[in-house]
Design a protein around this nucleic acid. Sequence first.
DNA 1: GTCTATATAACGATAGAC
DNA 2: GTCTATCGTTATATAGAC
Lengths: 205, 205
Amino acid sequence: MAGDPTTEERIFDAARRVFLQQGPQARMQDVAVEAGITQSLLHYYYRSRDRLFEAVFRKEASRLIPREIGILNSDLSIQEKVETIVDDYLDFLQKNPHLPSFVAYELNYHPERLQEFMRSVGKPDLQKLSQQIESCVDEGTMMPIPPEQFLVNLLSLCVFPFIARPMLHAVLGFDDDAFAGFIEDRKDHLPSFFLNALRPGADST
Amino acid sequence: MAGDPTTEERIFDAARRVFLQQGPQARMQDVAVEAGITQSLLHYYYRSRDRLFEAVFRKEASRLIPREIGILNSDLSIQEKVETIVDDYLDFLQKNPHLPSFVAYELNYHPERLQEFMRSVGKPDLQKLSQQIESCVDEGTMMPIPPEQFLVNLLSLCVFPFIARPMLHAVLGFDDDAFAGFIEDRKDHLPSFFLNALRPGADST
DNA sequence: GTCTATATAACGATAGAC
DNA sequence: GTCTATCGTTATATAGAC
């Protein structure tokens, strides 16, 4: 299967590349050129720019979140979840570096897409996470932490570098290789950093 | 001082509000309405949309980073820096919640602004931070960590929730009050979380 | 300085031939 | 299905009166 892609598929793939690389305000003309066709053919397949964009957004937004929610809702231990999510997510983001900025822009400036976004993502099972944390706390192997803070901390540490990438290039003097190396280091660094943060037995005035 | 603002100031302030709230693609017409004047008067003061936008961007970008760099480069202890930065930054971001998205968008999709952005921000003194970390490690009060990872972790944990805010509303069911409370909790939570992560004496095979 | 009216350009969208 | 040619709308920008 997947022999010659249909024209519709070629358009969709071109649109994905263009919207992700140039940003959500990219023009139909750019998509047409990328797909090697004329602008009017875009309208033949997708009746309007909005429909084409929405198709791309749905697809991409649904790739950003659910994979990690699946891991989070699984039966792995907290430690395994952290290790698995960090490894899997950093890997995924390295292959899709523009995805977070793209989705973040759209959600921030077009809140009407929040509804469809909500449907595209399963919700994390906060109750389960909360219980898991609680039993670790009871065992004395973990500090108490609200599950929301747990989740946001983990996501922040994984995703933020990709959104702030140009800032890191400016402030830390990264080039593309340095950034790749930085993320590679992070795969080792983050799990122990994160799990360490939750270790019991400290006090910080 | 600061009696009646000049027309130019009123335009600039209106532009700030409009660009930050509506996003970088907001129209001149919106700015004109917000400032209570006509569109052509905008051009009288700022020759083009680009100049007006650039003025706003410079101003706003220069507010996002330098304040924390100042703290970072100061003579405070590591612990004091973390506590001060978290408290100051979360406070600042709560008062300017749209700033990170605005700057992130612009830097990601208009790399030509990176140059001017670099000039607007002082660089963090990584060497100093590195030495500070090293001496804590020697004292046995801290785990070793590359200064870049230190910095990015700290920024991620502070800034990311504001960029991902609509996602948090969708995934965690926040409303505005819940989000504000979440950030308020975070002021207590983050410093101990972060400093705990760097405490020595763990291993996380 | 500030307005009204208009020019200019860009982009999305449609019509119609092949 | 795919193209060329063109329309309609919107946004920036300018001209010129007051």
